[in-house]
Design a protein around this nucleic acid. Structure first.
Lengths: 210, 210
DNA sequence: GCGTTTTCATGACATTTGTCATGAGTTGTG
DNA sequence: CACAACTCATGACAAATGTCATGAAAACGC
C-alpha cells in the first residue's frame, strides 16, 4: 500500500464537451501531462453526471452549451451530489451572466477556449490545490455588467420570441393570454434598453442571461 | 543529410481557426504524426492568406466562421492565387449551403468538428494524395436540401432583420424605401415557408444561406 | 433583341407588436 | 403584518410588420 509522502497520484479528470474533436484533442494532450489522468469523457451533461458519480474524479472540465444538460446544470448537480469533484467551466463565451451563474452553481474555475491548452492544465492543478481560477478578462467585466434584471417568466418568453415564435404561439405554449405575453415582452424590452423583442433577446443572450 | 529514397518529406499544413485552444491542440496532435508537419497557425482568414502565400503549405485546414475573412472567402482567395495549397474546411456546422459554397470555392475537403482528430489526419493524407473528402453525413443531405432561393438583396436584408434591426433602419442603411424592405422580407418569408422575418432568418441560417 | 430575373417603388389593407394604465392574486422577506 | 416583487389579466391606442397588386428600370442569358 504505502501512501507516498509526496503524493504522486495523478489528478483524475473527467471531460464533458459535446464537440468530439476538441474533446478528444484535450484528452490526448492532458494525458501527456505526468500529473494528470483523463479518466472519462462525456458528450453531454447527463452522461457526465453518470460517469462522475461512478468514477469520482477530482476535477470535471465542462463546456456550458451542451445537449441534454448544460454545464451550468451539471455543476449544480455535482454540488448537491455527494461527490468531491470540483468543476471547471470551459467555454467560448465571455458572458458575465454565465460566469455569475457558474459561480452560483459552485464552479471552481471559469476558463475561455480562447486560451491555450497549457492554461487549462495549469488551471486543473490550481483548482485541485484548492484555488479558484477565473479568466482575467472576465473577472473585471463581470461586476460592472450588472445583475440579470429579468424574471423567470420574462426569460422564458423572451427566449421563444427570439426564435421568431409569435406572441399568440407563445401564449398558447405557456397557457397565458396573448396580452400578457406582450406585456412581459414590453417589460423585457424596456429593462434591456432594446428597440424590439429580437433586439432584446440578442442583448440578453450576449450577456449570458438566456 | 541524405534525402531518403522513399520520399520522407512530411505534408506541410497550415491551420486557420479562431479558437486558440482547439487550434493549439490540433497543431500539437497533428505534429505527433510522422508524415505531417504544421508549419503555421492563423487566428483569422486574412492572417491565414498572408502566411499561406509566404510559406506555400500543401494543405490549409480552415474553420468557416472566423473574423476578418471567413474560411469560405479564404478558400476562394487561395484558389485564385498562385499557390498550390489545397483547402480542407473544418467546421461545426452541417449546413448544406456551407458545403455547396465550400465546393464552389474550390475546397477539397469538408469535415465536421464532430469527428475525431484521427479522421482529420486521415483527411489530410487523402487530400494530399489528390482525393476529395466530404463528411458522409453531409454528402447525402446536401442535394435534397435544395438550392438557396434567396437573392443577394434578400440575404442582405434578412440578415439585418434577423438581428432585430427595424425595417426603417435597414432601409436607411441600404438607402432603400421602407416599403421595399418590407417587400423583400415578405418575399423571403414566403420562399422559406417562414411565419415572420425572425423565423425566416433562423431557417436561412440553419441551412447555411446567410 | 427578347424574355427572365432582379431591383426598386407606391399605396392600401390586415395583422402583429409595443405601450400604457389599471387591477387582482401570490409569494417571499424583513 | 406590511412591503416589494412577480404573475397574470383586460382594454385601448399607436407603431411596426406582413401581404398584395401594380409598375418601371436595369442586368443577364441565349
Amino acid at each position: 500500500m504505502s501512501n507516498a509522502s509526496k503524493s504522486e497520484k495523478p489528478i483524475r479528470v473527467l471531460i464533458a464537451e459535446d464537440q468530439t474533436m476538441l474533446r478528444g484533442a484535450l484528452a490526448a494532450l492532458l494525458n501527456l501531462e505526468r500529473d494528470i489522468a483523463v479518466v472519462a469523457q462525456a458528450a453531454n451533461g447527463r452522461e457526465a453526471l453518470r460517469l462522475a458519480s461512478e468514477l469520482a474524479p477530482d476535477i470535471v472540465i465542462t463546456d456550458i452549451e451542451m445537449p441534454e444538460r448544460s454545464g451550468l446544470e451539471l455543476a449544480s448537480d455535482l454540488k448537491s451530489g455527494n461527490g468531491k469533484a470540483r468543476v471547471i467551466i470551459l467555454t467560448t463565451f465571455a458572458r458575465p451572466g454565465y460566469l455569475r451563474r457558474a459561480l452560483d452553481a459552485g464552479a471552481f474555475g471559469y476558463l475561455l477556449k480562447e486560451r491555450p491548452v497549457s492554461e487549462l492544465a495549469e488551471a486543473i492543478r490550481r483548482v485541485h490545490a484548492g484555488l479558484r481560477v477565473i479568466d482575467p478578462t472576465l473577472a473585471a467585466d463581470a461586476w460592472n455588467a450588472g445583475e440579470d434584471p429579468l424574471s423567470d417568466r420574462e426569460r422564458q418568453i423572451l427566449n421563444r420570441a427570439g426564435e421568431g415564435i409569435s406572441s399568440a404561439e407563445i401564449a398558447a405554449q405557456l397557457r397565458l393570454s396573448e396580452g400578457t405575453v406582450r406585456n412581459y415582452l414590453s417589460d423585457a424590452i424596456n429593462k434591456l434598453g432594446a428597440t424590439n423583442r429580437v433586439d432584446a433577446a440578442r442583448i440578453a443572450r450576449s450577456r449570458g442571461w438566456l
